[in-house]
Simulated assay, not measured.
Amino acid sequence: MLLRSHGRWAFNATVEIRGHMRGCFSSGLITESSAKRLKTTMATENPNPFRHEFEKYCEHLNQLNEKRERLVKASRDVTQNSKKVIFQVHRIGNDDKETVLKQAEKDLNGVRKQHLSRVANELQGNVNDAWKLRRAFSPGIQEYVEAATVLEFCKSGKLLTVADLNNEISKLGDSSTSQFKINILDYLLGIGDLTGELMRLAISQVAAGEVETAKRICNFVRDLYKELSLVAPIMDDNNDMNKKMEIMLQSLVKIENDGHGCLNQVIHQLYNVFLQLAMLFVLEVQRTYLKLRVNSIHTK
């Protein structure tokens, strides 16, 4: 009760002092500069114990926001240059395959050293920030995974694993601190985008007459969709993955339809060739028969 009464007295005294100061300020007894000096003096005499802590929180949030902006810019550069690598890979049908793949690999190394290294340096040594700011750099990581995996498929026909990708990224940072790694969520989302590029590659191969290559791509995408169908339902934050699974199924259907259409076209062409050969054979038989008839008439 005593403490409560003292607290009420202090509060009432503070209210009275402030009211008195307002009256003095309105009457002109205290100038504005004097009021500011008095306020500063009271603040220094009675410092707020929470002010210093909130200033540290404010500084931390400002630094976090600046880091987010730098990650967004770096992720945008990774996305743009990774797309250039994918466009380079799609030139396989027009130019020499070895030359195209070597240039694409060179461009991918440039993306890793010039742009992806900026993301790695920002997040190196702080695992918590990598998850806090994941949305800031996730689009660029997904595009990089897509470019690296489509290049590896064109080279070896195999799927590049997340361990292989992180092994290359580990060469960018300082080994004495905890290094940035591509997390499994961004890797799977990038693999979801991979099937769209493989669908375009398969269609271009069909148009070039490489039916076996298109068939191999179709089998690869089918197996990939079958395996990811087991993983997607149990993923954390799987809304994005569910959308990519729908697009993956559409890509698979397009590859199959285009492959079957090409096969039907080949069969139709073979059928036409067979009919022409059959007609030529019939005409040759008729011509031979007529010659024999004419020769038999002349001999009689």
Rank of each mutant, 00 (worst) to 15 (best):
Q80W: 12
N81C: 05
W131G: 14
R216I: 01
K291D: 11
L252T: 09
M1F: 09
S176Y: 09
N12I: 06
R216E: 05
R22Q: 06
H20W: 12
S26W: 06
L116P: 01
L160C: 05
N219S: 05
V119M: 11
I86K: 04
N219V: 08
Q179R: 07
D240T: 00
L275P: 10
D186Q: 08
V145K: 05
L116D: 01
N62F: 12
S33H: 07
I86T: 01
T288V: 13
S34C: 08
L2A: 12
S156W: 00
N109Q: 02
K56S: 15
N264D: 12
I191N: 03
D223F: 03
H268T: 13
F180I: 09
R118W: 05
L201R: 00
R8A: 14
L194C: 06
K226C: 04
A207K: 10
V85G: 00
W131L: 14
A13T: 15
V231T: 05
T161S: 11
A278Q: 14
L252E: 03
Q250C: 10
K84A: 10
R70Y: 14
T79H: 12
L292R: 13
A214M: 02
S33N: 08
S27W: 09
S156R: 00
Q276M: 15
K106V: 01
G190F: 09
A208Y: 09
D77W: 01
